[in-house]
């Protein structure tokens, strides 16, 4: 009977049930090639652990930043603590390098917070028309474009799914960017409640010349919002697919 590499590896790692392991042992005893392979699995693991097992020291500045976060967290956790207050100072961090080339600042905090999408009374002008997106198309995109995917949802208008997560109240939220061929990129978060999707956060950013990504200051604003709303970790692709399917 053939034995696959995964099973030999699991044997080498001691991850097989005793009866499985005994069977593998019998096969190894009869085949020097298999025994050599088990040794290769064991040796490679030991070698990798030896080579990378000692983690390099954490830079002092990073460690200090995170200790400050822990202190701020302790104040929030404390009885009578300021649970709803974001300690902005402790959150402020150095601008990640990948955002450095863009000096643009937040051009406009768009006044569409809380505007319901797709509800007639919200009106075309008051809702997402600020962002020049046709609402039906946006609702469709929120329900179907997966994170990491970009789709044209109007003439020259793009929708890029960034991430899906649940906020502190358990609502499904989607972070996305939309962009136009000329003009601003808007980074936004929409959450789904019983009444439908509503845009909970949006910042427009001055358009970059050649790269459709968003300047640092906007992302700091977004980070602050995410923290204030107790945003959970991004859903995996599978979780996102299941969450979106559940809305249908």
């Amino acid at each position: 009977m053939a034995i696959d590499d995964e099973r030999l590896m699991a044997y080498a790692d001691g991850a097989l049930a005793p009866e499985d392991a005994a069977e593998v042992e019998r096969m190894i005893a009869a085949d020097a090639g298999l025994a050599a392979k088990v040794a290769a699995f064991s040796d490679s693991r030991a070698l990798v652990k030896q080579a990378l097992g000692v983690a390099p020291p954490v830079p002092d500045r990073l460690a200090a930043t995170i200790r400050a976060m822990a202190e701020a967290d302790a104040r929030r956790q404390a009885p009578g603590g300021t649970a709803q207050v974001i300690d902005l100072a402790s959150r402020r961090r150095t601008v990640p390098f990948w955002q450095l080339p863009i000096a643009a600042s937040v051009a406009l905090a768009v006044g569409i917070l809380g505007g319901w999408i797709g509800k007639p009374e919200s009106g075309g002008a008051g809702g997402l028309s600020v962002a020049l997106i046709e609402e039906g198309a946006l609702v469709d995109a929120l329900a179907s474009v997966t994170s990491g995917e970009r789709r044209e949802i109007g003439s020259g208008v793009g929708f890029t799914g960034i991430a899906s997560f649940r906020d502190g109240s358990g609502q499904l939220c989607r972070e996305f960017e939309h962009d136009r061929a000329q003009g601003d990129t808007v980074v936004a978060v929409a959450c789904h409640a019983e009444a439908g999707w509503s845009v909970r956060f949006a910042v427009a950013t001055a358009a970059a010349d050649d790269a459709a990504y968003v300047p640092a200051s906007s992302l700091d604003t977004l980070d602050a919002w995410l923290t204030a709303n107790e945003a959970g970790a991004p859903l995996s692709d599978d979780e996102e697919a299941a969450a979106l399917a559940a809305l249908k």
């Binding site: 590896m9 699991a10 040794a39 490679s44 070698l47 990798v48 995996s236 599978d238």
Partner: peptide, 25 residues
């Protein structure tokens, strides 16, 4: 966020590749 079988097959390939490069037979 993948099935356990995927982890095992990736890991087995990775370890055999490292073993081969290191001359472990």
């Amino acid at each position: 966020g993948v099935p356990i079988g995927t982890v095992m097959s990736r890991l087995a390939r990775a370890r055999l590749a490292v073993a081969a490069k290191m001359g472990i037979k």
